[in-house]
Design a protein around this nucleic acid. Structure first.
Lengths: 135, 135
DNA sequence: TTTACTGCAAACTGTTTGCAGTAAA
DNA sequence: TTTACTGCAAACAGTTTGCAGTAAA
């Protein structure tokens, strides 16, 4: 797909097989949150011979280029998701790792206000709700 | 201090020098957020000969016992703070690492409501604001 | 043909663990 | 005296890096 070629070029990256495959993987699963290891395994399973180090390098480059965002839900390993224009936060189902995205204008606004009350400007934030199915 | 001895005993832990020293360090600095490495260095500087592995073990035990809480502000290393009875969230000044605590009932309530709207019970959450001094 | 990119293995960081010795109860 | 605890070094997981070879432009 030429679309992806252009996204890569626009990011100043050569169009190579690992980068194309990884970008396609994210665009084919826009709601996915994948770790480097998961991307690596998926490539292997797809018969692509891409090294894990390359996966890490590509994900880092994609992050710098603003193509993906990096998160750290469990403190042990990072996951990446396709960058979307609208900001959102995450809810993680602790029983199976499922990730749900949400936005709440009330919370967003309170955060800004709280930072201000303390003499700060809000630069960024990280909000993760750990939830389990209601019974 | 007998107070600390009892806290340790109540947690089912033998009263040993490393545990006492580390507990005192946290109680002497109730607003502090310390990494294992920082605790270790502080002990060294105080002339205490405690191994880093012991610091990790003690912090983990303290966390299980509910004496301290573990956080992960930057994704690279964990910090611990004395457990306080009231829950609070954190604001991190990205220019110097300073940590400020806050509580906001509006946010707390919205979180519960959002989880519910999605068919979940809220079990826990992590909210960190990354801020910089207002100019 | 040039230069960026890749795979591999080795290095690194934060943290955990096995073990023989040490100290609290 | 028993058993939990400790320090040390080695192991570990996730991630990064140096390097010689490979492929995009």
């Amino acid at each position: 797909m030429t679309t992806q070629n252009q996204e890569l070029k626009k990011a100043g990256l050569k169009v190579t097989l690992p980068r194309l495959k990884i970008l396609q993987m994210f665009e084919g699963n826009p709601d996915g949150h994948l770790s480097a290891e998961e991307v690596y395994k998926a490539l292997q399973d797809g018969g692509e011979d891409v090294g894990l180090a390359t996966v890490y390098r590509v994900l880092t480059q994609f992050e710098s280029a603003g193509l993906v965002m990096k998160h750290n839900f469990d403190g042990t390993h990072s996951v990446y998701e396709l960058a979307s224009e609208e900001h959102h936060d995450h809810m993680v189902n602790i029983e199976n790792g499922e990730v749900v995205e949400f936005v709440d204008p009330v919370i967003e606004e309170r955060q800004r206000a709280i930072a201000k009350e303390h003499g700060f400007d809000l630069v960024d934030h990280s909000l993760v709700l750990y939830v389990r199915p209601k019974k």
